[in-house]
């Protein structure tokens, strides 16, 4: 564990140095990558370990985003506290949802969370405190003056999100190796056997769903920080789908692959833009291409690297060894 801590500190240091050397756009994309890392991590915890699937994590992100924005805009709480609140409250909400979810498996859970993703953002229009279509403005504040005059806002976002992502990943890596991680894996591979070994399956599933929701809420709050408003349109159904894609591409069981999934999710809109501009920027292409790329990637990933690139590489290496030996 100490080794891992050192590794994460070193990783943070490297990221900090990189953040100093690239231009503003890249720094901003770095912040988005960090947000996606947390969100995909939450899906890996849920799906890869406890074996539950959620198509509604975009809605949970929206929930966290609204919590954070309300904390800052209405109660004028400090930013860090708003993030903690977002994670906590979304976690509790997820726990309540988890009571229903824990009874379900596979497609039931998928469909229910899908309904959540379609329904929850439209609730925002129902309550005036949530600001309707326009949403709520979240004032991210200026970076502390002690960091110097030239310290840009985007770099400040990058620092915050990266720090959050590093802490989250450190925590995830530890918890997945702990008693809880083992219990969840046992649950996923055979819940009857797990029950016979004394695992309270329902409680463990609710716990996993709740923790995963908390992380999604944190990711949502950070996303809202980087775009400085929270509105229903920032959390479309396609966000939930993109997160699933990111997790499958990363390898649903593989925390190390998270970076890959997050980077791909950030790159896809850019690739789509450049392809669309080559074809003359018609509305048809610009609005459908990102969705096509995400979905096609999802299908290809399921067909060709179903358990992630890590396992595929392992397989290839193994094959080569047995051939030569």
């Amino acid at each position: 564990m100490r080794k891992r801590l050192l590794l994460f500190i070193a990783l943070g240091w490297v990221l900090l140095l990189i953040g100093d050397r690239v231009d503003e756009l890249r720094v901003y994309q770095g912040a988005s990558i960090a947000v996606y890392v947390i969100a995909i991590g939450s899906i890996i915890l849920l799906t890869g370990y406890s074996g539950q699937i959620s198509l509604g994590h975009g809605a949970l992100m929206a929930f966290g985003g609204y919590v954070a924005a309300l904390c800052v805009a209405n109660a004028s709480l400090p930013l860090w506290f708003a993030f903690v609140m977002a994670a906590l409250v979304t976690g509790i909400f997820g726990g309540i949802l988890g009571f229903a979810a824990a009874r379900l498996s596979g497609p039931y859970l998928a469909g229910t969370t899908l309904a959540l993703a379609v329904g929850l953002p439209s609730l925002a229009n129902q309550f005036s405190i949530l600001g309707g279509e326009q949403g709520i403005y979240l004032d991210p504040g200026l970076p502390p003056a002690s960091l110097g005059e030239s310290f840009s806002q985007y770099k400040w976002f990058f620092w915050i999100t990266t720090l959050a992502a590093l802490i989250t990943m450190f925590w995830l890596a530890n918890i997945l190796q702990s008693k809880y991680g083992r219990t969840w894996r046992a649950l996923r591979s055979n819940d009857v056997a797990a029950q016979l070994c004394g695992v309270h399956t329902g409680r463990q599933k609710v716990l996993a769903f709740s923790l995963s929701s908390g992380l999604a809420g944190l990711a949502g709050a950070l996303l809202v920080l980087t775009i400085s408003t929270v509105s229903p349109s920032a959390f479309p159904l396609s966000l939930s789908f993109a997160l699933v894609t990111g997790a499958v591409v990363s390898g649903i069981y593989d925390l190390k692959g998270v970076m890959l999934g997050a980077v791909i999710l950030v790159i896809i809109p850019e690739v789509a833009d450049s392809v669309a501009s080559r074809f003359g920027d018609s509305l048809k292409i610009t609005s459908t291409l990102p969705g096509l790329l995400v979905s096609a990637l999802l299908i290809l990933a399921v067909l060709f690297t179903p358990n992630g690139p890590g396992e595929k590489l392992h397989h290839l290496r193994h094959k080569r060894k047995t051939h030569s030996g």
Binding site: T47, G48, G51, I53, L55, G106, P107, A110, R188, S238, F241, V244, T245, V248, I252, Y253, L283, K284, I285, S287, T288, L289, G291, L292, V294, S295, A296, L298, I299, V302, L303, P306, N307, E311
Partner: peptide, 30 residues
Amino acid sequence: SGPIVAIAPVVATLGLLGVLRAVVGFVWGV
């Protein structure tokens, strides 16, 4: 094999949904 098996059908049909939607968007516009 692997943890993906349980969710592969869900994930695959979801991907197909996205592809079909995009294809329709390409052909008939949005």
